[in-house]
Design a protein around this nucleic acid. Structure first.
Length: 296
DNA sequence: TACCAGGAGAGCG
DNA sequence: CGCTCTCATGGT
């Protein structure tokens, strides 16, 4: 049962754009309510509010320690130091200037993997809808303060492994349903060890992930970057490919492979952060272009 | 209405 | 390899 009581803490932060970070296509379950964002981390309902050089966090159950949330938000990451490592070329500078404070979160690996299997050839709005249905139908309910809409944990691999393909298709997963199901079986059975990925090299971990059904290079790099802490991972999707071609290779023919090589060598040790800035920059610019009716 | 979306896998030469 | 096609579904 729920009461209106909440428990809160404050994380001191600098250069942290909470809204941009939670709405940048790396997580899909956060919703804005007034000036706050509500979501579920693990088994806990969370409300986050941006303040002056701080993030205020509220949960429903009393918490003695907040390491789990600090880890998710990555509040102790020195963003300024990371931005220093970016190349100083004009496109990169423009991308950073467009959204200083954009961060990378540290997600739970299974939720990240499952989410991005469901992401392929979908718009972010639709990815949110599919994942919301999946959690509403098959996730365990989590305690929420009274007056708040009910919330559900992300269904674990063991749960999804026991579902039928049609149950997943009912969530509008489409042709991704059999991929998610088969991958859930691999993870739930223990044949695939998600937790061990971070002990491997980037290349080895990526190769392992790409053995899973429905997981190619792009989704593998998303999991490595968003969940496993490989800052060098550089997911190349249609937006990032478009960004690289327009910003760095305008009017030059480059194939996909050459583009990936450029991505792997040009952006430094925190290339994944650079990628997220380019992705956000491109999406924002395209949005404005759409309203002007220009751009292709 | 037509096109496209944070792709992957299979088939082909 | 590298290219093309298909897959399911809804937003714009």
């Amino acid at each position: 049962m729920s009461s209106s009581r909440t428990f809160e803490t404050v994380f001191p932060v600098r250069d942290y754009d909470l809204a941009a970070t939670l709405d940048s296509g790396q997580v899909f379950r956060w919703r804005r309510k007034d000036a706050s964002w509500t979501g579920v981390v693990g088994k806990h309902w969370v409300r986050l509010t941006s303040a002056q050089n701080a993030i205020r966090a509220q949960t429903h159950a009393p918490r003695e320690q907040w390491d789990w949330l600090r880890a998710f938000l990555q509040t102790r990451v020195d963003l300024a130091a990371i931005l220093e490592t970016f190349p100083g070329d004009p496109p990169m500078r423009a991308a950073v200037a467009a959204c200083r404070g954009l961060r990378l979160l540290r997600q739970e690996p299974w939720e990240c993997l499952a989410s991005f299997i469901l992401s392929s050839t979908k718009q972010i709005v639709q990815i949110r809808q599919i994942i919301a249905q999946l959690c509403d139908r098959f996730g365990e309910p989590v305690a929420v303060p009274s007056g708040e809409p009910s919330a559900f944990a992300f269904p674990p691999a063991e749960k999804i492994a026991g579902l039928s393909e049609s149950e997943l298709r009912a969530c509008k997963a489409g042709f991704r349903a059999p991929y998610l199901l088969a991958t859930a079986v691999e993870v739930a059975s223990g044949r695939f060890n998600l937790k061990a990925l971070r002990t491997l090299s980037h290349e080895r971990a990526r190769a392992e992930l790409m053995n899973l059904p429905g997981v190619g290079r792009k989704i593998a790099d998303c999991v490595l970057l968003f969940a496993c802490g490989f800052d060098s991972a550089f997911p190349v999707d249609v937006w990032v490919e478009r960004a690289l071609r327009r910003l760095y290779f305008s009017r030059r023919r480059v194939n996909h492979k050459k583009l990936r090589h450029f991505a792997a060598t040009h952006f430094g040790p925190h290339a994944g952060y650079a990628q997220q800035y380019l992705f956000h920059y491109m999406r924002a610019k395209n949005g404005m272009a759409f309203h002007r009716g220009a751009e292709k």
